[in-house]
């Protein structure tokens, strides 16, 4: 635990990076590329966990497959690395089996909104009590930089070698339209705001969607002559406009255009499980055994 900086000559054996207690330390260093933003989002998430004061034994994390999907394997929580696109239905079963758990889905844009798009829209519609963190790097990182449902028009990807001509999703609009209880977008430049959104998400009941724009320097930025991760963070800094409460229709992203960030939706709707318990209790009366997870 000694973390000694040549520049400061400091020694403090009790000192520990605040992220470390949340990581499976024996698995660090991680596999992510230099200046990839995924690790930055993990810092924000762990700060949110600290702030939340929640019992970490009651938080489970579910990822799909992709670079972001590896987050589950690094966090020292009950963690599940499932199949590509299916983190949300796995998380749905986990949450319903034991409603006392706070279940967080942490995955990539391709995973959650291409192959997993159907599950995403239905979980939002049902207001399943899940917090979904989507690291949107506009690409399929893990498989080498193919076009994603989020790739801005014009951007080059290996399967759009002459530039993307397919219209991308506006994810906050999608989540809002499907009924999410909480929708926010930040970038990895906005570390404090992102951590705060994650904290709010942890405290919120219902379907929470947090989009974190993040560089994939290896496959998106460089291929599109946007420099490195740090250049992309500077781009976020210069081009982001905070628009809390904005109409989500207006939040589409373009290759070089402004980036609307902020909290867009924060509303109360009964969760799927609350609705089930309430409805069946009303209809079936004393016959109904409300579900709280049993002894599971």
């Amino acid at each position: 635990m000694t973390e000694n900086t040549p520049g400061t000559l400091l020694r403090d054996i009790d000192s520990i990076n605040p992220v470390m207690p949340y990581l499976r330390q024996e698995r660090i260093p991680h596999i992510w590329c230099p200046s990839c933003g995924i690790g930055t989002t993990v810092n924000c998430f762990t700060r949110a966990l600290t702030e939340s004061g929640m019992n970490l034994d009651e938080i489970a994390i579910v990822s799909g497959i992709g670079c972001t999907g590896r987050v589950a394997g690094y966090l020292n929580l009950d963690s599940f690395h499932t199949t590509h696109g299916r983190a949300i239905p796995f998380a749905t079963g986990l949450k319903l089996a034991n409603p006392r758990l706070k279940v967080v889905v942490y995955s990539g844009d391709g995973d959650l909104t291409a192959i997993g798009g159907n599950h995403f829209v239905h979980a939002a519609r049902r207001n399943m009590d899940l917090m979904v963190i989507c690291v949107n790097n506009f690409t399929y990182g893990m498989t080498g930089g193919q076009v994603a449902p989020t790739t801005p028009l014009g951007a080059k990807q290996t399967t759009m070698p002459f530039g993307n001509y397919e219209a991308p999703f506006n994810l906050p609009f999608l989540a809002d339209a499907c009924g999410a209880s909480y929708v926010a977008r930040w970038t990895v430049f906005h570390v404090r705001q992102l951590a705060k959104a994650m904290l709010e998400g942890l405290k919120k009941r219902g379907f929470v969607f947090i989009e974190a724009l993040s560089p994939c320097p290896t496959l998106y930025q460089r291929r599109n002559k946007r420099g490195d991760g740090v250049d992309e963070l500077k781009f976020y800094k210069q081009n982001s406009v905070v628009k809390n409460g904005a109409d989500t229709k207006e939040l589409g992203l373009t290759f070089n255009g402004p980036i609307a960030v902020g909290k867009f939706v924060d509303r109360e709707r009964p969760t799927w499980l609350d609705a089930m318990n309430e409805h069946l209790g009303k209809v079936l009366g004393a016959e109904y055994l409300p579900w709280e997870g049993g002894n599971g």
Binding site: P89, F90, A97
Partner: peptide
């Protein structure tokens, strides 16, 4: 896969 989440729950 929902059923598998439930088993791990």
């Amino acid at each position: 896969i929902a059923v598998q989440g439930a088993v791990w729950g």
